Computed example of a mutant assay.
Amino acid sequence: MTDKPKVEAPAVSQRPTHLHTHTFHGLAPGPKLLVLGAVHGNEVCGAKAITQLLQDIDSGQLNIERGSVTFVPVTNPLAHQLQLRIGDRNLNRNMAPSAIPQDFEDRIANVLCPLLDAHDVLLDLHSFHTGGAPFVMIGPQDNSGTLEPFTHAEAEMRLAVCTGAPRIVEGWLDTYARGVSRRAAAPTATGTARAQTLVTNPNYGVGTTEYMRSRGGYGVTLECGQHDDPQAVQVARRAILQTLALLDMASVPPEPVPADREILRLVDVTDREHAGDSFSREWRSFDAVKAGELIGVRHSGFQVKAPHDGFVVFPNPRAEPGQEWFYMARRRP
């Protein structure tokens, strides 16, 4: 399979100068919820669902009664303006304030990180390249380790379940850390020095939810469906409403949760090394593979095979060299 021709980014006449947020305060005490859309600019289902719900609030169809909720329909306005995943870089990596911001995403993070600090719970709405069912990503079990210490695993699992996603995925940060370690040991000779510095930074696996956990809160990333699937908007809308119900912030009736849920753990990540690397077929997230099954072929002719029985996750046929090509997952025991 060959990649599609690279699409040139639309011209930008003026870079965005602000981040647009909408906050509603209930008149009774309660938690502080943050809902993000379009952290990646071409993942618009969350932005569309948030826009619908803002209209419902303005019309009185939905009332925030307890706590407060802040909606950010478009979290990366430059990437959204470009209709691309990123602006200058991936906003959902290396999430941290910058004393000396070097790119647009650094400047957004300088606004977004204090916003995350000010909230208790995060729902981050995304979509994915290839087909497949929605899934939700959670953090680690409660632990006091050095990589991602955490004390809200039970609450986070309740949040994940209420989104209605039939599949729950864990193991992001430690899997990403292994990928960073490999990149640092054998850097790809492509991209700018800035790009190489980012992808080999141990903090590069930290996105919105990881930052939220590091600040004492909890949150999930909901992958609502394929980018262009209109049903992804409804998945995002339902998740927001059910989160408000779970947190008792609005008079929204709770819906039944899936009886059968699959929990998978990410165990490894494989980078694309060359623009000529190609998949053996059009993989979708969570396609099952057997040990030794062909997944892709390197530009050199080297065959990339599944190291064990499991599932292909986040296959990205247009990944830049040195970036994540696909992940492998296994069922949680």
Rank of each mutant, 00 (worst) to 15 (best):
V35K: 11
T75Q: 05
E8D: 05
Q61A: 09
I240A: 02
R183C: 02
R178V: 00
R66V: 03
N316F: 11
A319I: 01
L82H: 05
P97V: 13
I138W: 00
M95S: 09
H80S: 10
T243Q: 06
I57L: 07
P254H: 01
A9E: 12
N110H: 07
P317V: 15
M249Q: 14
T192H: 12
R331H: 06
L294I: 11
I168M: 15
G205Y: 09
M328S: 13
P166G: 15
L247E: 08
P77D: 14
P16C: 10
G179L: 14
L125N: 13
F286G: 02
I295G: 11
S300T: 14
Q81R: 09
A11W: 11
Q231L: 12
P73L: 02
R330V: 14
G276S: 04
A186W: 05
A49W: 03
F24D: 04
Y218S: 03
S181F: 00
A49I: 10
P321I: 09
T146N: 09
S68A: 15
A47C: 09
A319R: 07
T175V: 08
G87E: 03
T130N: 15
R261V: 12
N94V: 01
T163W: 02
T151E: 11
L123Q: 08
V111N: 03
R107K: 14
Y327A: 13
L112H: 06
H40T: 04
H80E: 07
N94R: 15
S98E: 11
R213V: 02
A38G: 12
R213G: 08
T146I: 02
G30Y: 02
E43Y: 04
N203L: 11
N42M: 10
E255R: 15
F150S: 08
L82K: 14
S59L: 04
T192K: 13
F104W: 05
C162P: 00
A79S: 10
F314E: 11
P315H: 08
G179K: 12
T243F: 00
S127C: 14
R261N: 01
E293V: 02
P134T: 08
A329P: 07
N42Q: 09
C162N: 07
T243G: 03
D277E: 11
L147S: 06
V206W: 15
F311E: 06
S59P: 06
R183E: 07
G132H: 06
T75S: 10
N201V: 00
G292Y: 05
G139N: 05
M95D: 05
M249Y: 04
G219D: 04
V235R: 13
